[in-house]
């Protein structure tokens, strides 16, 4: 009797506490609400919109009114040459960016770390980072000032002076892999350099002092101390970018080649294809099929990359 009474008392107390504690959390939910609403509108509703790819989309009828198309949109997409081209371009350019970007930004970070003059070092960092602040629209203008067939610096001042004929840059495919890679390196190296520099700065000076006492040259110290200690950062960033290899930088591939049709076979990536199919041709079938194809493969890769990082360094994983 007594025991049960006290138990019910405790229960009542617990209930009361739970009630008040629940109430005490209400302000937190209120604060989380705008963010939750935003994510539902911006992220979760579009996830449901994936069914557009399986519909014969008619804007007037809306999603629910349009007829089902099954996998027809995907069949059309993969029957075209485009599907292969855009996949190849996306993967090859991203691979080039990952490899070159990693090597160059580490090299730049190591060299900048050697500059002992603080003011000079800060100035170099700021200048090399400056392009990262610019939008791709601006980069489009800058590249155009160099490459324009009629007024560009390259044709008029450099090729001319060398006695070489002018090149119609925006119509000749063979140069574009280089132009795109250089443009991307120019814009993004400063960013990844800062990340590597911040982990180089974190390396204890004791290692280097011990190494110089043992007579190791700077070159050797770089390979035996700096690079091995950077390895975790390199691996993490590498895996993260491999996880995003199916997504391309729309701005780079849309703005820099100025959406020139003659260059499509070497400049068009999945994102540019989706944009053109959707906004220029109003082709909901092809664009949504390509966009869902990117989402699904992209999701698999991001997931795989994160599982791998989780194994290697828990704290860098997203989940």
């Amino acid at each position: 009797m007594e025991a049960s009474a006290s138990r019910s008392e405790i229960n009542a107390q617990n209930k009361k506490r739970r009630k008040t504690s629940w109430r005490q959390y209400i302000p937190f939910y209120v604060m989380a609400l705008p963010g939750v609403i935003y994510m539902i509108c911006n992220n979760y509703l579009p996830m449901g919109g994936i069914i557009i790819a399986f519909k014969n989309m008619n804007f007037k009828k809306g999603i629910w009114g349009s007829d089902w198309a099954g996998f027809d949109n995907f069949k059309f997409l993969f029957a075209s040459q485009d599907a292969w081209t855009i996949t190849r371009n996306t993967l090859l350019y991203n691979s080039a960016f990952i490899v070159l970007g990693t090597v160059l930004s580490i090299a730049v970070a190591i060299l900048i770390n050697e500059v002992k003059n603080k003011t000079a070092s800060k100035m170099y960092q700021s200048l090399i980072l400056l392009p990262f602040l610019m939008s791709w629209v601006i980069v489009n203008y800058l590249v155009f000032a160099l490459l324009s067939a009629e007024t560009g610096l390259l044709n008029n001042s450099i090729l001319n002076a060398l006695g070489k004929p002018a090149v119609s840059w925006y119509n000749e495919k063979q140069y574009w892999p280089y132009i795109l890679i250089i443009s991307n390196m120019w814009k993004t190296i400063g960013y990844s350099m800062i990340i590597y520099l911040s982990s180089i700065v974190g390396i204890s000076q004791d290692y280097y002092e011990a190494a110089s006492i043992d007579g190791a040259s700077k070159w050797r110290q770089t390979w035996a101390i700096t690079i091995p200690l950077l390895k975790p950062t390199i691996i993490t960033l590498f895996i993260l970018s491999v996880g995003r290899i199916f997504y391309s930088d729309f701005g780079l591939f849309y703005q820099v080649p100025r959406n020139s049709g003659t260059l499509y076979s070497v400049t068009r990536t999945i994102d540019v294809y989706v944009y053109n199919a959707l906004m220029r041709n109003s082709d909901f079938g092809m664009s949504s099929a390509a966009s869902v194809y990117q989402s699904i493969v992209g999701f698999t890769l991001v997931l795989g990359a994160n599982l791998l990082i989780r194994k290697l360094s828990r704290e860098n994983a997203l989940f």
Partner: peptide, 21 residues
């Protein structure tokens, strides 16, 4: 709530459905 936020980094509905919404 955390998962809801992190999942948006892993998966997205793509440009077309975002445009439609």
């Amino acid at each position: 709530l955390s998962f809801m936020s992190i999942f948006t980094m892993l998966f997205n509905g793509g440009i077309v459905s975002s445009y439609y919404v």
